[in-house]
């Protein structure tokens, strides 16, 4: 059985490359659509600290985000290649230290910009499970959930 350990999404945005790049790489603009506010800009090799603040773009989503207002959202910036690639690492879920890597890849398109988003690193979770097992720590439950999820996702 093949194992799914990454998420990939691709869309065409009808806007110019400058506009899309700024919406992703400018922490203030990113926060506006994503639903977050950050203490500073995204800087390569640094952690940008922030928190969930309901999005200004979609009232329905904003209402869903409201209960999570103020929750930590910290991004470790691992790639900034203007107009091409932006990537960060973050906690795979609010209750685990395991991080996944999210990458935004941009490509010019006749109608605008092709944007591909990937989230990967779910396959690092089994190592965390092994560590927690070795240390006799039962706190690896969340990681185990995710490990199982890989097999399920591949099966469905």
């Amino acid at each position: 059985m093949a194992i799914q350990d990454r998420i990939e999404k691709q869309i065409v945005l009808h806007a110019d490359l400058d506009r899309v790049w700024a919406a992703i790489a400018d922490s203030r603009q990113f926060g506006a659509w994503f639903g977050a506010e950050f203490d500073g800009p995204f800087v390569l090799g640094q952690t940008t600290h922030g928190r969930i603040v309901p999005t200004s773009v979609d009232a329905e989503v904003a209402a869903m985000q409201e209960p999570h207002r103020g929750s930590d959202l910290n991004l470790d910036i691992v790639a900034i290649e203007p107009h091409t690639r932006f990537a960060f690492r973050w906690a795979a879920s609010p209750d685990t230290d395991v991080q996944t890597t999210v990458t935004f890849t941009l490509r010019p398109h006749e109608d605008g910009v092709v944007l591909i988003i990937t989230e990967e690193g779910f396959d690092e979770l089994p190592e965390t499970v092994r560590q927690s097992t070795r240390e006799g720590n039962e706190g690896g439950w969340e990681a185990q959930t995710s490990l199982i999820a890989r097999y399920v996702a591949a099966d469905s």
């Binding site: 806007a15 992703i24 988003i117």
Partner: peptide, 13 residues
């Protein structure tokens, strides 16, 4: 991510 991408689309388009 599906939801976030739609918000990004609204934001840039």
């Amino acid at each position: 991510w599906d939801s976030a991408l739609e918000r990004l689309r609204s934001f840039v388009e």
